[in-house]
């Protein structure tokens, strides 16, 4: 990419499409951006095994729902067909898919998504009990200060403004029901 003009000249010489250069540039930028770190065989095997478990579980449960006849298909027939399909395909993946490199290794930073997910769940638990305002504010603080590394000042300003904006938007702007503690 050091000499875009020459690249462009080459490009036009080879293919007439004018946007192809953009395309390639973007492609390279994208590849650089998410330098992937494939997880290896274990990741592929686990993926296939989960599929296999889903398929087998589906087969067992759908057999219990009643297959019916072709004239009157029962509740279990279609789930059984689909479950068998999942099982067969997952088994195939287990055999041929071990060498795929489309997975992504867990690292220390993978703990961050876990913390993020936990804040979501906490919000959902607390919302019906104490309204959405305080949990939403806490969620913002955790995400901005601890997960995002913002300064305390911007954390507080952004959190308060966000929660106030959502309050106004949902309760007054849209008049949709949302559990809340404070009423004005």
């Amino acid at each position: 990419m050091s000499d875009p003009k020459r690249a462009e000249a080459q490009q036009t010489a080879e293919t007439p499409a004018p946007d192809l250069l953009d395309e390639i540039q973007a492609e390279v930028a994208k590849d650089l951006e998410d330098e992937k770190d494939p997880g290896g065989t274990a990741y592929q095997v686990v993926g296939a095994l989960v599929g296999l478990a889903l398929g087998v579980g589906g087969i067992v449960l759908s057999l219990g729902y009643g297959l019916g006849t072709l004239r009157e298909p029962g509740a279990g027939m279609w789930p059984l067909i689909v479950s068998v399909l999942i099982t067969v395909l997952s088994a195939a993946l287990l055999v041929v898919g071990r060498t795929l490199d489309d997975s992504e290794r867990f690292r220390r930073a993978s703990l961050l998504p876990a913390v993020g997910a936990a804040t979501f769940v906490a919000l959902a638990f607390l919302m019906p009990v104490i309204g959405f305002e305080i949990p939403a504010l806490l969620l913002c603080v955790v995400w901005l200060r601890f997960l995002g590394g913002e300064t305390w000042r911007s954390t507080i300003v952004v959190s308060v403004v966000t929660v106030a904006a959502f309050y106004a938007l949902f309760l007054y702007g849209l008049r949709v029901p949302l559990p809340h503690l404070f009423a004005f």
């Binding site: 993020g116 979501f120 959902a124 939403a136 995400w143 997960l147 995002g148 959502f166």
Partner: peptide, 15 residues
């Protein structure tokens, strides 16, 4: 900044 956009998106989806 992504750090600020993230909690906004999170709240929009949850609510």
């Amino acid at each position: 900044r992504p750090a600020i956009l993230a909690p906004l998106t999170a709240l929009i989806t949850v609510l």
